[in-house]
Amino acid sequence: MIVCAGVRKSYPMGHGQREIIRGVDLVIRPGERFGILGRNGAGKTTLIKLIGGVEMPTSGSIHRHMSVSWPLGFGGGFQGSLTGYDNARFIARIYGREYRELRDFVEDFSELGRQLSMPVKTYSSGMKARLAFALSLAIEFDCYLIDEIILVGDQNFQRKCHTELFEKRADRALVLASHNPGTILEYCNRAMVLDGGHATVYSDVEEALRIYNDL
């Protein structure tokens, strides 16, 4: 379970502060598929970062009672100057996993081939997303935080993601941020609309989408 209570986040802007998240209360239960809808700049990525503990809320609290992945997005979580393999080795070490198993899974799942021995900074954003996906699936979290990247890659890769995340790991929780209504409708069973820093949670995804479309 993840419990967010009164979460606010502001960033310094000029001489003042700009509040991006203005009070979010949220409970994500095990196995739940939770969608975050919002336009560009509504604070989806910020909220995902807060849930993942990458950044800290300005006020309010976030408690994680299950293992939560790092936010999987187009960047972040990797050292650009190190190769894909080096990054995998590092992640295996800090999460206490066997490197060989992790490597085998990553090679098979990411289909990055020889690119894995190149520095990550040479990867395209899609390739980075594949690597992040592969690593986090290999580590096995109770909850996956996904920022927009579900539709990355070709048909084949998407099918793989679908199998691994929605069939083999159907019992896991998922927090998915997207501005694409189709994605949220397809994968989520509960959704939130972020607008002007305020969040409204809907247990009916279609209702959330209706509100979102009217924004």
Partner: peptide, 9 residues
């Protein structure tokens, strides 16, 4: 900064 993605660090 990129390592802050992993909470144990």
């Amino acid at each position: 900064g990129s390592l802050m993605y992993h909470r144990q660090i």
